[in-house]
Nucleic acid binder design. Structure first.
Lengths: 180, 180
DNA sequence: GGGGAGTCTGACCGATCGGCCAGCTTTGAC
DNA sequence: GTCAAAGCTGGCCGATCGGTCAGACTCCCC
């Protein structure tokens, strides 16, 4: 069983990070999952951060690669490569992306937010154009959900737009995403 | 100064939650910011969660309102109202959205991820079609960033698409968002 | 002045966390 | 068989957290 403790620890840690987030997972949780002692984890890894670093290392490496590939490009071609590269990155490291997003997901489950989850699900339905929308429409709806939130929050930093212009840009972008 | 301690606590807490996240902010931090004792916070609020609940209450209320408005609608009109309602929601409660997203932002600042931040900025440049792209293009680029990540992570749950179909849907959606 | 309600505080508590360490057991080369 | 290295563990530590509590202070009504 304990043929490769290091790999086993990484597997268990990744699984737990996805479900309960990085902060929300204690070394004891990982040790319980692995079936060893907490001290054993710290024999294989210098600390909790080291586990996360090793899990996310490949992601940053590939992102750096994409970054380098984009450095010499410009215009239309750069956009296409950026889009495809980013999509591939997210899909290839879906588990790792989930780890990053899960601290957020966990916030959504916070009692302070009540049954926001179900309302968000219904919002996706509406954006997709009905409960029985085709899969591609549901994906576009999910993209709008994340895209507007991220862009809206990010826009606060670079305030070179009025609120009205920002609103219009977000609405137009969302409708384009939904192919409307 | 301490005319309305309750409001003052909420203000300081919101500011700290945005910068250091909910989990990353201790009651002592809030107390220091307010200039009172930690015990005083717990006199005004039943606990740390109660502070978050009061901060996020208006958001969930408005989301519930949008949810109700969508209940009776269908088709094209539902999409338009969902999009505009959601955009308005995000913009009106930009600070609160930032609180939700900041636990994520903080993860991005984790040493394990190195200088991912700068690479992400350059990725936005590429997606927007150049460093000096117009503001609307930059917003669309930010939407792609968040949208693909959220949709990609979410798609893992409802696996009614092959990876190739999922990839194609994400790429098409991203290009639509960017108006390409 | 008396006294009750509202406000605030320092000291303290139990729980949990990440991490450290001395020492035990297992393994494998010689 | 020997013995050193590798692997592993229980027990412990300091720090931090959210939360409790008895008491002190202020203000205002009588």
């Amino acid at each position: 069983m304990a043929r490769d403790r290091r790999g086993q620890i990484l597997d268990v840690a990744a699984g737990l990070f996805v479900v309960t987030g990085f902060k929300g997972t204690s070394l004891q949780d990982i040790a319980n999952g692995v079936g060893c002692s907490k001290a054993s984890l710290l024999y294989h890894f210098s600390g909790k951060d080291a586990i996360l670093t090793e899990l996310l290392g490949p992601v940053t490496a590939e992102l750096a690669e994409l970054d380098a590939r984009l450095a010499g490009l410009d215009g239309e071609e750069a956009v296409r490569i950026a889009v495809e590269g980013y999509v591939d990155l997210v899909l290839r490291f879906r588990r790792e992306v989930k780890i990053l997003l899960d601290d957020l997901e966990q916030m959504f489950r916070h009692p302070a937010l009540g049954d926001v989850h179900q309302m968000v699900d219904r919002l996706v339905d509406a954006l997709a154009g009905g409960r029985s929308a085709d899969p591609a429409a549901r994906i576009a709806a999910a993209m709008v959900l994340g895209g507007v939130a991220v862009a809206g929050a990010r826009a606060g930093e670079t305030a070179d737009l009025t609120d009205e212009e920002l609103r219009a840009a977000l609405v137009r972008g969302a409708l384009r995403t939904l192919d409307h």
